[in-house]
Simulated assay, not measured.
Amino acid sequence: MRKITIFKRKHLLVNAMLLMSTVIARAQDGAAGIAEADTKVRSYFEPGTNLMYAIGAVLGLVGAVKVFQKWNAGDQDTSKVAAAWFGSCIFLVVVATVLQSFFGV
């Protein structure tokens, strides 16, 4: 094993102290960064919720057309298809509403 000279030890110690002081200086601004991130994330909830409602409306229209086509064709599984499309629309609306109420936007 090579011995570390006193000069190298002091050099390593000084570098470690400089690194720690930099980390501590950056960490003191952490609360402000977290608050800024919180406001930015919360600003996206209302447009995101509206987008989910719009996607649910489009899915509802597409599902209604698909179910109508199956019903006119006389398919036996029309009720399954209707339940699946209706369930997906309800799921999107419920998720959007729960997210909005959960995060208090």
Results as ranks from 00 to 15, higher is better:
82 A>C: 09
103 F>N: 07
90 I>G: 03
60 G>K: 12
75 D>Q: 04
46 E>L: 14
79 S>A: 12
93 V>P: 01
97 T>Y: 03
89 C>I: 14
45 F>A: 13
88 S>N: 03
61 L>M: 10
45 F>P: 00
79 S>C: 02
57 A>P: 01
89 C>T: 13
47 P>I: 07
51 L>R: 07
94 V>Q: 06
77 D>E: 13
54 A>G: 04
57 A>E: 11
55 I>C: 00
48 G>P: 01
55 I>Y: 07
51 L>V: 02
50 N>H: 11
47 P>W: 04
45 F>M: 13
79 S>M: 15
64 A>Q: 11
104 G>A: 08
84 A>L: 12
77 D>W: 01
73 A>V: 05
60 G>L: 10
61 L>A: 15
56 G>W: 00
46 E>R: 08
92 L>T: 00
87 G>P: 08
65 V>D: 10
87 G>C: 02
76 Q>K: 15
68 F>E: 04
54 A>T: 13
98 V>N: 04
45 F>R: 08
64 A>E: 08
56 G>D: 09
72 N>A: 15
102 F>Y: 14
51 L>A: 14
55 I>H: 10
103 F>D: 07
105 V>R: 02
98 V>G: 08
72 N>W: 02
103 F>T: 09
56 G>R: 03
71 W>F: 14
88 S>I: 07
69 Q>P: 04
54 A>Y: 03
57 A>Q: 03
69 Q>V: 14
102 F>P: 00
78 T>V: 15
87 G>L: 01
64 A>L: 14
79 S>K: 13
47 P>F: 07
97 T>C: 05
76 Q>S: 15
63 G>P: 05
75 D>S: 11
84 A>D: 11
91 F>D: 10
85 W>L: 10
90 I>M: 06
68 F>Q: 08
58 V>E: 03
94 V>H: 00
93 V>F: 08
94 V>I: 15
59 L>Q: 02
87 G>K: 04
70 K>W: 05
49 T>K: 12
73 A>I: 06
79 S>T: 14
74 G>C: 06
47 P>G: 06
64 A>M: 12
47 P>R: 06
89 C>W: 01
55 I>F: 06
94 V>E: 07
98 V>M: 11
67 V>F: 06
97 T>R: 09
57 A>D: 12
56 G>K: 04
99 L>Q: 02
74 G>S: 09
88 S>T: 11
92 L>I: 14
56 G>C: 06
54 A>E: 13
55 I>W: 02
77 D>P: 02
82 A>Q: 11
64 A>G: 09
78 T>K: 10
47 P>S: 12
101 S>G: 10
75 D>F: 13
45 F>D: 01
59 L>Y: 00
49 T>C: 11
65 V>P: 08
49 T>Q: 11
81 V>D: 07
61 L>V: 12
97 T>G: 01
52 M>I: 10
64 A>K: 10
54 A>V: 07
84 A>I: 09
55 I>A: 10
59 L>A: 05
52 M>W: 02
49 T>R: 11
88 S>L: 15
93 V>E: 03
79 S>Q: 03
104 G>Q: 14
60 G>Y: 07
60 G>F: 08
86 F>D: 10
47 P>K: 02
80 K>Q: 08
99 L>W: 01
93 V>K: 05
76 Q>Y: 04
87 G>M: 04
53 Y>C: 00
71 W>N: 08
47 P>D: 05
65 V>T: 03
